[in-house]
Write a protein that binds this DNA or RNA. Sequence first.
DNA 1: ACATGCATAATTGTATACAATTATACCGTG
DNA 2: CACGGTATAATTGTATACAATTATGCATGT
Lengths: 222, 222
Amino acid sequence: MESDNYSLGARVFHTIRENILSGKYETDEELKEKTIGEELGVSRTPVREALRQLELEGLVTIIPNKGAYVVGISQKDIRDIYEIRSRLEGLCARWAASYITKDELDELDENIYLSDFHAAKGNAEQVVELDNRFHEILYNASHSRELKHVLLDFHHYVQRVRKITLADTQRALRSNEEHRQITEALRQHNEELAERLANEHMMNTIQNMDSYGWDNLFQERK
Amino acid sequence: MESDNYSLGARVFHTIRENILSGKYETDEELKEKTIGEELGVSRTPVREALRQLELEGLVTIIPNKGAYVVGISQKDIRDIYEIRSRLEGLCARWAASYITKDELDELDENIYLSDFHAAKGNAEQVVELDNRFHEILYNASHSRELKHVLLDFHHYVQRVRKITLADTQRALRSNEEHRQITEALRQHNEELAERLANEHMMNTIQNMDSYGWDNLFQERK
DNA sequence: ACATGCATAATTGTATACAATTATACCGTG
DNA sequence: CACGGTATAATTGTATACAATTATGCATGT
């Protein structure tokens, strides 16, 4: 999804974020600048910058002169995010319906085709990557910097949950089917339909998580 | 809205953000760590941290080894944000309709009452503050950390535009009337109505900006 | 045994020093 | 005069040093 040609500071940021979202750093764990710096082989400076950024993202809480603590992501947080996303992905699809190009539609088609293949094979990693890309194309097609920004944030935020739900072949294939319908609505430039389908796509994911069982989604964490 | 008991670093962050949003730093202007540090009487370290945070907020772009540049906020950005907010404020009101308490409803009533007073007097500053507080109560009443987080971000983002639109007495009074209707829906725990009214409240703001004339909203910037 | 207070250690906050990279200005050459 | 190259300066990136604050542990007294 994104290149590795990052500066050191940016890499530190991504590493810590990944460690929080993957559950490597536990909820309420204190993140000490010195310790993390030693782990990653850098000084405190880039670690501090990363922690300050992560606070803005809501992943850590910083108590001045005390420390940085991992903010837990509750089941309700995840639900809320998907409900927020349902509204915004809907708006995104609506806008994309106006602007989307033939090239983008072609890539969406290919994306779904490939995802079906990998889902059938059980290649969860690739399915997640293709899902990332599918939504990213829509974000770009919305032609809205602000909407893309906020949606990308949330998308990253729930990456861990998506890795689990999309590992289920049945859900992955159904998700692809929903992607196909959205793509079709976009091709027809049908704003109303595109919005409704993208909206439902997210709500279906919540339903899926409900039936999957939230305990299973969180078992690795604790 | 928030206390001033901040650490130095946090204050630097807020100052720079304010300078960007108020237009003191022009679009595409290069923000040099040394210069800003001297302006604010601090070293480069807290400035760097602030700039990295502002990049995450989308207010500056950082080109590695080159510099930090102010990202311009276009008219379309503002429109998009209000449309995004219309969806999310609607969702927020819907959730708040379930959770809102009598105390919060009382504060909303008082808030509107005071705002009417200040609007009539032409105290734009107070009207903006009360508007901030009105929406903040709703964000809290939604009982959703994630929704509150993203809405607060956007709310700050458009602070400058709000200062202008709410300086118009007619618009301020109409805004208060809309607040009153939303509050009434909340009091009745009418989710559907609350969502629709909050949604329309934002869309009306867009309409108002349209009739106000975008050029006037941006005249100070350029 | 437990609470209290003080000394010490650990940690964060800020400033500064140094390294790496990029911009600038000057000079020579065609 | 235009162009290019090189030395110099300016700026960012990272590490370290020092100050301020907070945590820890031990001794003391009750």
